[in-house]
Design a protein around this nucleic acid. Sequence first.
DNA 1: TAATAATGTTAAATTTATTTAACAATGTTT
DNA 2: AAACATTGTTAAATAAATTTAACATTATTA
Lengths: 184, 184
Amino acid sequence: MTPQPHHSRGSLSPSLEHYLRAIFDLQENKGYARVTDIASMLGVAKPAVSAAVKTLRSNGLVSHRVYESILLTEEGAKRAKGVSGKFSILMHFLTDVLGVEEEQAFVDACVMEHYVSGNSIDRFLDLLRFFEEPGNQEILEKFHQFRRSCESVDTCPTCSYHCDISVIDFDDMSKKIKQSKRRV
Amino acid sequence: MTPQPHHSRGSLSPSLEHYLRAIFDLQENKGYARVTDIASMLGVAKPAVSAAVKTLRSNGLVSHRVYESILLTEEGAKRAKGVSGKFSILMHFLTDVLGVEEEQAFVDACVMEHYVSGNSIDRFLDLLRFFEEPGNQEILEKFHQFRRSCESVDTCPTCSYHCDISVIDFDDMSKKIKQSKRRV
DNA sequence: TAATAATGTTAAATTTATTTAACAATGTTT
DNA sequence: AAACATTGTTAAATAAATTTAACATTATTA
């Protein structure tokens, strides 16, 4: 009889976070989330959902009696809302600001929402808002014109970014980070 | 005697891609990459490196005789350069444009480089260049002022983005994507 | 050159996330 | 209510990426 954590303040894996948000969105849009809905939404098999829900349940983020639909707890809803908000910010940024195709933006936002820090998301939001400021829309329009003009030039289908951007030294950076951790 | 693929055009896992780039950076900066260097750079145990190198080798991306240092093949170097370029673009974007702290930017760029599509990276690069255009630096400066003014307002340490950004419907989007796949 | 230190590998175990196959529970239809 | 369809679970297997412990190889040094 090992005591189980009934709610966790710890961080979720990207995968579990994604399940959590799917449940949130289904709950918002149809009022409830069933295993099959989640499975089809995320493109995974049902047992994967069962397993994920079990873990979320043991973390106190959903309540779920077997064979019934899944409900977010207060804590679960709070977290899901956070992820959902990140997604929206990223999606708007990618499509409205950068001009990324909607489908591509969706795929990218769906992974970034789990991997990009809250700090950076805040900055993305700042930039999004900056372009919404009165008078700044024309700057965005100017960028879109610029973008269309260089698009054909620098797009590398092989993802080989041999561009003129100054290279940042990964090795150096990782050392720097380590040192700063040591200081703490 | 199953025939092994001596080089693959397929895609690498984020983890393997990260090893590949670490090897590239070490090779660039010290001329060679040893297991211990890679392990300490990435903060993993040595057997993890051995295993990763073995896989990279079977994919024809590195050449490595046991107990000797690891060399990228031509194909390996090409791929590593691509990842490294993505990293630099992201790093510049996060620090120079968004104004994210260097350490945070490093962490974020290190995951984004593997997860964000080439399409979106191209758009990040466009925006980076837009701000470098003569006359546009002052726009960036204007943004930085704007950013500093709203920073304290919208930063949510709990990552709860209950902001005024219009919510994008994940459920709808995922259906749309599925339909478009069906069309193909 | 023998002992020691550093470096690298193998083996075994663990964790997470997934799949398929089989089964159980629930809902619907005739 | 019985048959069938849908939905959900459990069990077993797999794959990727990791760890620790033990061992092998190579390099250094006393």
